[in-house]
Design a protein around this nucleic acid. Structure first.
Lengths: 159, 159
DNA sequence: CGCGACTCGATCGCGCACGATTGAGTCGTC
DNA sequence: GACGACTCAATCGTGCGCGATCGAGTCGCG
């Protein structure tokens, strides 16, 4: 039985060498690393990132948090709900604009945020990359994200 | 904030510059790109990858597919079930070892696999990276994955 | 003032992803 | 032959992530 099926054009890129899978596995490995570091705090990685964003940005509308994470309300809303249930943040309608919901850390949220403040440094250490390599990789990934998003936008015309 | 953490005390790493978020967003962007390319075929990105693996490896046990994707049975089993429901593959017990389930593409699966054979090339084009850049990025990400996994293994001693 | 376009956030359904567990099957050792 | 350790796959519960949709609130324009 030949391994060739049909009249392929020879574009048999081995799965192991595909960028998508490399990205996929690296992302999962990162998530697993965060899981280990955060499991004592009852936080997941996305929840941790929300805390970081609120610590850096201060009180923000749901849209603001979502934009920082590259997500939409359908993902962020339940995420914020769970964090609110843990007493780490509050949500209240903005007085100026009744559509927007302002998200703000509670004292407990700020305290927990301070506790896990050094997690990024531990992640950097666990990554085995020095500062320069990490910065370069981050830049490459940001450019890749932008290029891919651009392609998606072009295909799916909005507005 | 008396942070005494070794050399890299950059506790206030802006969220935008964190490797985890860059990885997270690039992975999602990749998924979105695949979604656009595959939506006409009723396939998700993980399903597409399973098809690719089976096309390249031939009939494989569930464990084999899982290892290729870096996943476990709890993720792969339902994934295979959905693909079987679409008539793209079959699952049957191995004759030699009744524990293992052999997964094999059907004719329909092979046909669909051939149809979407050029998707990786389209992805490469959409990424805006030339062959060399892509290969380098893949290498970097594989090393990163390995290093991170190693750290996780060390923390959670199994066996 | 009234109407339509828009924004904001939430909800629903589906498909991953994973920790934990279960149960069937296999093998080594006694 | 029987027992225990192991392997393989499946299942359950929880938490993302997203397409699609909805309802409330806001604003522009006549």
């Amino acid at each position: 039985m030949g391994t060739t099926v049909g009249t392929t054009t020879g574009t048999d890129v081995p799965v192991d060498q595909r960028l998508c899978l490399a990205l996929y596995q690296a992302s999962h490995a990162m998530d697993a690393t965060y899981r280990v570091l955060l499991e004592g705090y009852g936080l997941t990685y996305p929840q941790y990132t929300v805390l970081s964003v609120l610590r850096q940005d201060g009180p923000s509308p749901v849209t603001g948090v979502a934009r920082r994470l590259g997500l939409s309300s359908n993902t962020v809303s339940p995420l914020l709900k769970r964090l609110e249930a843990q007493g780490l943040l509050t949500r209240r309608r903005s007085v100026g604009d009744e559509r927007t919901v302002l998200v703000e850390l509670t004292d407990a949220g700020r305290r927990l945020g301070a506790e896990v403040d050094d997690v990024p440094a531990q992640i950097t250490a666990a990554s085995g990359l020095d500062e320069g390599q990490q910065a370069e990789l981050v830049g490459t990934l940001h450019r890749l994200s932008a290029t891919l998003r651009e392609g998606v936008e072009r295909t799916a015309p909005e507005g």
